[in-house]
Amino acid sequence: MKILLKKKLTSRKIMMIACILILAGYVLMSGPGSTEKAFNPDIFSVRRIVIAPLLCLSGYILIIVGILKYKSISDNT
């Protein structure tokens, strides 16, 4: 019983980590933009166009891992 629960948590855990990664990625991607007054070079900062998309992508790929670890629907609480 405990082993089953642990396995099930793994899939769910992975999904949660994936969600957090994706949200973190989107948060880091956000920020002020260019306006009519000035071009904002920060929109192309390393944080916003390198780290953020990498986090998002790893989250989206992690979801695939989470699905593959998914055990059947029928035996759970």
Partner: peptide, 26 residues
Amino acid sequence: LACVLMILAGYSSYGVIFIRANANTP
């Protein structure tokens, strides 16, 4: 329900478009 959730999860990638559009890229 799991399938619907997963389709929406994939569709959520449009967050990139939404957020970057707000940055007013050239």
